[in-house]
Design a protein around this nucleic acid. Structure first.
Lengths: 342, 342
DNA sequence: CAGCGTTTTGCAAGCGCTTGCAAAGCGTGC
DNA sequence: GCACGCTTTGCAAGCGCTTGCAAAACGCTG
């Protein structure tokens, strides 16, 4: 890097580079954008000048003029959530590789103004990844209306208008339930997710199917509504523990709920897994640091993020091809929180 | 919201609003920017039209023309880290309230290209919050050169050219060490952070000072270098446990290290806190879900994020006033992982 | 060496907005 | 009823860039 770089408040523009290279500014633009009809010698001269001056494109101007901003938006509900962080990690990684920047939007911002918010987002970004299971309908309406490139994460899309990436929720729940059954459990409680979410419904159905396939009747009193959050997991586990015929195992529909359940079980003076087995879903990093370590179903969160980016970039390249849907497979991770009942 | 909103791909511009309101586009601009010399009746007419059409400003254009983008950048090293998430939460919250958008940049992106990266960031944002203890010098050079508004989080700034927000690291470490001493511990191991970071040095010094104030000689073999990461915490704890005269308590310089240490201690067949007390620093959410729950020093992470935003906005308003420095106080949080030695 | 088809370059317009400047409106005092 | 000063509005330029179009340069061929 040379010393000529923009130290003062007047940054180097494409004109400066053009002057330095002895060509017109449009030629500079073409070189910088990899346009092909440029003589090699000219290209080199421009590249040199740009390098020497420490030129860096003003992305706002580029966005305005070219209609593309090279920014991808990410809409999330909360930030202090491992699930979200992990997916974000994959997204960031993939975007960096593709040369895109990331703009972060949180849903708690403008209640009642989702439409405007969506417009604002659209005015700044080339595409949007939605990691917002719950509020998503409101945003989706606004976004689909203007046919804006987007991808849903962890959400099945009924309309087919949105690309999406998700995991094998049903199968994961089936497997982890089966795991408990194989250990000898017959009374298995379940703490569901928010049933408005397809992932929660799929997991619950997987649980049911596993019981049925092993000729265990589904007992509705063992099904407690949760919301994927720790506090509800705690309360739901308490409810399960108060049952006359207490379950010998609990399947929490996500790890966060499982963490809550773990607290409740411990407070009740019971031991995991001796008195009661506990399994979760997601395999967030915390699942491996609890004591005992949590048996769970791994969702490839980072890879889901990467895949979402890939799908989105495909949409940007081929706006007219039908949106892609990718389902990644989950994996049962057996740790220390599950064992045969007494 | 009306049905006239931009459904097609041609979004509503300021001209459309001007036409609808029967005024010139510059008047619209003035109204939208809260300019004062506008007749009330005109203002209302414009507001109505904007509302009716569902107008939303194109922030790229606004940024280009006005020199302000209403975007604040956040530079972080990694995303899957509770510490980072918590601070981000505070930042997002405060920015939302102030009407700014958030653009996320990760440092792992362009090694060797930090200068350009910094320029790019500067071309898109109005200011930058740096949460990048380690790599920060490289970025800081580039940023200070162009006198770009920025705030450092958790980093003392020697030059005084940068605004900064941090916590009472020395005092927190002093207090938690004293807590262990009061419980009766005399051999207290410490797992440091990366000593290139001021926070790590301050915490180590606080530990030392507490020992000295209680006439306990500092034993260098009890000081193990760590790096604030879980893996090193694990290894460092193993090293401490192998010592001839094993410590009866360990102070990990951050919670992540403490989590690693916890694993090592448990693997060695020892119990926390019966055989050995363990304390951390930060009070990340995980600290409350470990078993036993971790005694630690709470840093007001969310508030640090909020404060960073506040300092940055001040800088934007008054570029010439000296950059602010705010130090938030930490708080000892006594949980179950510390008790008197046997 | 003229004529032609390519390749390469430059010019101008325009992306949607802000803002300095000047013109137009308006009310007041004389 | 006019001049004056203030408030309010409109026009034009310009932010830094992309891109369509036309001009220039080049390399052939006959």
């Amino acid at each position: 890097m040379s010393d000529n770089s923009a130290k003062s408040n007047h940054p180097i523009t494409i004109y400066d580079v053009a002057k330095a290279a002895g060509v017109s500014y449009s030629t500079v633009s073409r070189v910088l954008n990899g346009f092909e009809f440029v003589k090699d010698s000219t290209r080199n001269r421009v590249m040199d000048a740009a390098e020497r001056l420490g030129y860096v494109a003003n992305l706002q101007a580029r966005g305005l003029a070219g209609g593309r901003s090279n920014i991808i938006g990410l809409l999330v509900p909360v930030l202090d959530n491992s699930y979200v962080s992990e997916v974000m990690k994959g997204i960031d990684e993939a975007l960096a590789r593709a040369g895109f920047n990331l703009m972060l939007f949180t849903t708690h911002r403008h209640e009642g103004k989702e439409q405007q918010y969506a417009s604002t987002i659209a005015s700044m970004t080339d595409g949007l990844i939605l990691l917002v299971p719950l509020e998503s309908p409101i945003y989706l309406d606004a976004i689909r209306e203007r046919n804006y490139p987007h991808v849903l994460v962890d959400q099945t899309d009924e309309s087919g208008a949105s690309a999406s990436v998700s995991a094998t929720n049903w199968q994961g729940a089936y497997e982890v339930t089966q795991h408990l059954i194989m250990l000898g459990h017959r009374r298995i409680g379940v703490i569901t997710g928010l049933l408005e979410l397809s992932s929660a419904r799929e997991r619950l159905n997987g649980y049911r199917a596993a019981l049925q396939d092993h000729d265990i009747p589904v007992d509705d009193s063992l099904i407690i509504q949760g919301d994927y959050l720790q506090a509800r997991g705690y309360a739901a586990a308490q409810a399960l523990l108060r049952l006359e015929r207490r379950p010998t195992a609990i399947f929490a529909s996500n790890d966060l709920s499982a963490l809550g359940a773990m607290d409740a079980i411990r407070e009740a003076g019971l031991s995991i897994p001796d008195d009661i087995s506990l399994v979760g879903f997601d395999d967030i990093p915390q699942a491996a640091i609890t004591h005992p370590k949590l048996t769970t179903v791994r969702q490839p969160l980072v890879q889901m993020g990467r895949t979402a980016v890939q799908l989105l970039l495909e949409r940007l390249e081929h706006p007219d091809s039908p949106p892609g849907h990718i389902t990644l497979t989950t994996e049962l991770v057996i740790r220390a929180s599950s064992k045969p009942p007494r």
